[in-house]
Amino acid sequence: MATAALLCACVLAPAPASSGASTTRARAERPEAHPTTLTAALSPERLGAATTIRIGFRVSTPASGTPSPVTDVQLLLPPGLSIATSDLGLETCVLSKLEGGGAAACPPDSLMGRGSALTEVPFGSTFVTEPASVTLFSAPLKNGHPQLLFLASGELPVLTRLVFGALVMPAGAPFGTLIDTTLPLVPSVRGGPDVALVQLQTTIGAKGIVYYERVKGKTISFRPRSLLLPARCPRGGFRFSAHLTFQDGTRSSAATTVPCPRHT
């Protein structure tokens, strides 16, 4: 019991800052059943240059409450960013391969980002927090939309492998791109509540990623070019937003802005 309480306390603790000054946070103004915090950062943040997005959300659940699984996540990214102008996702991975063989089954050149997640796994009358690593892959177009695949792998206390897809779509101003993710429900014990995702953070970009290509019969590695920031900063900065839908029917939203870089 003490362990479970400690783990839950960790979930509610502030997440470490990911990129210093370029990260801001915002909490939804209305009281919500599952208040959500969104964090975003651009690293590095130089206009016209390559960058890696680090974006994540955290759902706070009252200590007395039961966390409700997130069933849909809509992440809205600022305009002016395009995967197509980067080298990311030169190859694609399909859902069945990822489900069957994990990350190793996907081409290295389909890797798009990495991150982490926390889930609340029901154990008896309590919940235990399980950390998971997250890997993001490029997937084939689906219904004309670019697609991403998330792989979340946890080992303790329960060995889990969760794969889910996200569609990349255009979004209206002031945003440019919508990443729409539908999360599958993960059953726990019979009759018990489903596993709840309470925190997800991932990069989208080339930071820490190595690709491979064949040149004159030799395999060489290279760092793919990352997403390119636009030459001009959008008015008001780079805006990010998240809309979450929960299994209990409630919704939560959060937004954050990465300020425009200061001129030097």
Binding site: G48, A49, A50, T85, D87, V210, K218, T219, I220, S221, F222, R223, P224, R225, L228
Partner: peptide, 11 residues
């Protein structure tokens, strides 16, 4: 295996 940094698009 050789590792190299490909030139930037600007370059």
């Amino acid at each position: 295996m050789t590792r190299y940094d490909r030139p930037t698009r600007r370059g």
